[in-house]
């Protein structure tokens, strides 16, 4: 079943075509990787999918519903979770409270003025934190976490609305190699168990070739290749603009 369908979206920033006529779709339970050189337009694509940026043209459909140009708030309510390339969490709160706020928003319990916030959805928050391996750090301040742990917290927040589509922008950047694979395996399991469609970008080829079902390659805003791991690895154009010799990326 197709969760997300993207049809010919484009975006320019003052003359620079950041994304040009990109189309693809993601099915339930599928892990789709979007890779490409720095500045290829991957994050811009993500921003258009979750409403951060409105596309200049093209259509984005989520579970059959046109969501082009909706606000991030609406899109989150329709079941899209996202992690950011530059992490964005609430520094004055603990790890658990970060997730609790997301849960409060998801369950529409924000406009409550009396009952203390810690009494809401604590168990559910701990459950999500346990899933991403952050249970022990639940009472630490989010502002002092190491980078890799922040990424995990981001994932827990993104899962709080039980999303149909999960967008992960460089989810493992800055993490230790073993943890990268572990985190992406986790995402992979979530995807297949709950039928979540996952779209992610990565510069770590171990991760990309290890977990992606399908790979899209973006270069200067345009899709230049699409296929499974072996097909992408042997694509001469992808090698030239992105993969290189593989000497510093594990031979991929």
């Amino acid at each position: 079943m197709t969760i997300l369908n993207v049809a010919g979206i484009s975006k320019s920033f003052g003359g620079v075509r950041a994304v040009a006529d990109v189309s693809f779709s993601v099915a339930a339970g599928e892990m789709l990787a979007l890779i490409g050189p720095n500045g290829a337009g991957k994050s811009t694509c993500f921003n258009m999918l979750n409403g951060q940026t409105a596309p200049d043209s093209g259509r984005v459909t989520l579970q059959g519903r046109d969501i082009t140009g909706l606000s991030p708030r609406r899109i989150w309510r329709l079941g899209v979770g996202r992690t950011f390339q530059i992490t964005a969490t609430f520094a004055s709160m603990t790890v658990r409270e970060n997730v609790q706020v997301a849960l409060l928003a998801h369950h529409r319990r924000v406009w409550r003025f009396l009952r203390p916030a810690f009494a809401w959805f604590g168990a559910e928050a701990d459950g999500l934190l346990a899933q991403v391996g952050m249970a022990e750090q639940a009472s630490r301040a989010a502002g002092v976490l190491a980078y890799g742990d922040l990424k995990r917290l981001e994932l827990a927040i993104a899962l709080a609305n039980a999303p149909a589509l999960l967008l992960m922008d460089e989810p493992t950047a800055g993490m230790a190699p073993s943890e990268r694979v572990a985190l992406m395996r986790l995402a992979r399991d979530l995807a297949s168990q709950r039928g979540i469609a996952v779209l992610f970008t990565e510069h770590d080829m171990d991760v990309v070739f290890g977990v992606a079902d399908r790979i899209l390659v973006l270069n200067r805003g345009e899709l230049i290749a699409e296929g499974d791991g072996p097909a992408i690895r042997s694509d001469a154009r992808v090698r030239a603009v992105y993969l290189g010799s593989g000497a510093t990326s594990g031979g991929h």
Partner: peptide
């Protein structure tokens, strides 16, 4: 206050 970006992205 802490992160307008994240707040918006979780529907606040």
């Amino acid at each position: 206050r802490d992160s307008a970006l994240r707040a918006e992205a979780i529907g606040l």
